[in-house]
């Protein structure tokens, strides 16, 4: 699976490299050559990876005999991915506070935290601390207001 994905990526980079205009040809190595060589190499490597994968030579941690993932990996990953989708959304619509709380809560849940009141409490506290530290002390730009309304 991963090897096939890699092969697809190699195809994409080859296409991307091909579409770089070479520009006026007064230099021996133009802007396209490096990307072209690299994506060509990547394609070869991807091919080798597909072959290795078919021979079962690429280890997959999912089948690690010593330490297989605990049951429920899908649910945990689901929480994680949901967080990665909704945290930026919350960040975009309602500002840093919403995004931060969503991100923290989903990650905590995916690490096996069960009690929602505890999760929410910790998420709010952690987000506040980080916001104070980054925006106020280190003066990065997280947005001046904690909560922003989209309208």
């Amino acid at each position: 699976m991963a090897a096939l994905g890699l092969a697809a990526l190699a195809g994409l980079t080859l296409w991307g490299a091909w579409s770089i205009p070479q520009g006026p040809g007064f230099s021996a190595v133009g802007p396209r050559d490096f990307p072209l060589v690299l994506s060509g190499t990547l394609a070869l490597l991807a091919l080798a990876a597909v072959v290795q994968a078919l021979r079962g030579k690429i280890p997959d941690e999912a089948h690690n005999p010593e330490e297989p993932p605990l049951p429920g990996a899908r649910a945990r990953m689901g929480w994680m991915l949901a967080g990665m989708l909704f945290a930026p959304l919350g960040l975009h619509l309602f500002g840093f506070f919403a995004g931060g709380v969503i991100g923290f809560a989903t990650v905590a849940r995916s690490f096996g935290a069960k009690s929602w009141p505890a999760i929410t409490g910790w998420a709010i506290a952690a987000t506040l601390v980080v916001w104070l530290l980054f925006d106020k002390v280190l003066t990065l730009k997280l947005g001046n207001e904690l909560l922003r309304l989209p309208f």
Binding site: G103, F104, V107, F111, A113, I119, W122, A123, A126, V130
Partner: peptide, 10 residues
């Protein structure tokens, strides 16, 4: 772990 990794992502 939940609070630690939640904090790291945050």
């Amino acid at each position: 772990a939940p609070w630690l990794y939640g904090g790291i992502i945050l």
